[in-house]
């Protein structure tokens, strides 16, 4: 598969994403500079973390107007998976590709630590290889990761099964307040759009793809995308067992 890793001035997880995809997932991955206006030839798009354009004004506020974001919007409309991590999630929200917004952490401090994440649905190209209820461990590192949306949007998200991952206690699997690193509503860590091909999350799967880093759980998210692209469609929602390859 060929992944595009978008590079904004100020992206700083671009290299981490590229290396996770190439070295740990054995995929093709290329940087795409923010001044580029086409994403032709890529199977999937990753908007990595960092501080695009310095994140001045609001996170992602300036990035959404870059030429490459127009291309990302076109790509998203065509259906291939678009996947935003951390600052990438903020940019996708600012661009209107995902509902809601990310505001300053409740603690008002940057927070960098490992969190527990519960997979809430397997019905998405990003979680299709992970059974519902699985607890993943991966780091967060952000100052503005508190997920916010109005009542109606939140209800919509739940109705349409768009919350893909939630912050939970890694031992009990419960979405308790102590496990919420930033004050996100309903412990939401990541959501997808109604069409289910655009996904954003605050935690960093790119930082959890190698044993050296203490967790390889991030691979399962990337693997879901790879499986989807390879034509292994997501399993039906109630079916916890994935169809074997080629079946």
């Amino acid at each position: 598969m060929r992944f595009a890793v978008i590079q904004f001035p100020g992206s700083n997880c671009d290299q981490d994403c590229l290396h996770a995809l190439r070295d740990d997932m054995a995929q093709e991955a290329e940087y795409v500079w923010h001044k580029t206006d086409s994403l032709a030839g890529f199977d999937a798009v990753v908007v990595p973390g960092g501080f695009s354009y310095g994140d001045y004004l609001r996170c992602g506020a300036i990035a959404r107007f870059s030429p490459v974001m127009a291309a990302v919007k076109t790509a998203a409309a065509d259906g291939p998976p678009v996947f935003g991590v951390c600052n990438g999630f903020q940019i996708l929200c600012e661009s209107g590709l995902l509902p809601g917004a990310l505001i300053r952490n409740r603690s008002l401090q940057f927070v960098c630590e490992e969190v527990g994440l519960r997979v809430e649905t397997s019905d998405s190209p990003f979680t299709c290889a992970i059974p519902v209820g699985t607890i993943l461990r991966m780091p967060v590192a952000h100052g503005e990761g508190c997920y916010f949306a109005d009542h109606e949007t939140l209800r919509d998200l739940e109705t349409h099964d768009q919350v893909l991952v939630r912050y939970v206690d890694a031992k009990t699997g419960e979405p308790v307040a102590a496990a919420n690193p930033n004050g996100s509503l309903a412990n939401i860590a990541g959501v997808c759009n109604r069409e289910r091909n655009v996904f954003g999350l605050m935690p960093h799967p790119d930082r959890a793809c190698n044993r050296r880093l203490g967790s390889e759980d991030g691979k399962r998210i990337f693997q879901s995308v790879i499986d989807t692209l390879a034509g292994r469609r997501p399993a039906p929602k109630d079916d916890a067992v994935l169809a074997p390859v080629g079946a």
Binding site: Y53, G54, Y56, L57, I62, F65
Partner: peptide, 9 residues
């Protein structure tokens, strides 16, 4: 720096 970034945008 913030002002400059906004100006450039």
């Amino acid at each position: 720096p913030q002002g400059n970034a906004v100006r450039d945008a």
